[in-house]
Simulated assay, not measured.
Amino acid sequence: MRHKYWGTTQYYLQPWEYPTRYAEWIGYSLDYVNKHNDQENLSNKEEKSSFFERASVVQMLLLAQKKSPYPIPYMYGQTYSILPELIVPRIFNPNKIRSHEGTSLLNIHYKLQTREQSLATTIGWGLLAESYANFGLMGCGGLAIILGAAYGKATRWSINAPILSVQSLFAVMMMSFAFQSEYSAGVYVAALSQSSTVLTGIALFFNEETASS
């Protein structure tokens, strides 16, 4: 209203014209508010969409199923071949690869990212989608057997154990890893190795303290 009427004319507004000018002013205000709300709603929808996409990796499994083995072939264990190197502590291997290297290989293989982009941003895949990308349905079956055996062993090991015992703490740690939907095998193994090392060190320390006392 200021840009439209202020200083642009010598016309003097008459009292009976006040309602029309107020109506025009209110109309501009409502247009501005509606436009602002639309932008906020669009932003909120984008944020919610982004959140749900990041919280779920089902779309990555569907992507692998759609594109493999044709036109993109299976990876045949390429992301699993780096697991032995990830277990070695960095102090013994200063040139150790990143724990997210397997995730980067998946994104590069399926043309979601370049090598440079994967160094800055990580698109999570999850163990199930990774297993399908490597060996198809046979990979998913193998993953079920391995995880079932590991979780079952941790459960049996912790049965009737004290809550603060190594067995119970290890079972809790394994349960927390089971909720990490975006972990690839490399991240899973590296994090599990590091956490187990810390847990073992704590257990040895307290055993020495108990023996000394």
Rank of each mutant, 00 (worst) to 15 (best):
Y5L: 09
Y5A: 03
W6C: 15
T8F: 07
L13A: 10
W25Q: 01
S29Q: 14
L30A: 05
D31W: 00
K35D: 14
K35C: 07
N37Y: 07
E40M: 12
N44L: 12
K45I: 15
S50C: 01
F52H: 12
V57S: 04
A64M: 01
S68E: 06
P69R: 08
P71H: 10
Y74V: 00
Y76L: 12
T79Q: 09
L83I: 14
E85Q: 15
P89R: 09
R90I: 02
F92W: 13
R98M: 04
E101K: 11
K111I: 03
Q113R: 15
R115E: 10
E116R: 14
W125E: 00
L128A: 03
A133T: 08
M138V: 13
L143Q: 07
K153S: 15
W157Y: 09
I163C: 05
S165V: 06
Q167M: 06
Q167G: 02
L169C: 08
F170W: 13
V172Y: 06
M174T: 02
A178H: 07
A178D: 08
A178P: 00
F179V: 04
S181F: 07
E182F: 07
G186A: 10
S195V: 07
S196W: 12
S196Q: 09
V198A: 09
L204N: 14
L204Q: 10
F205Y: 09
F205W: 12
S212N: 06
S212V: 15
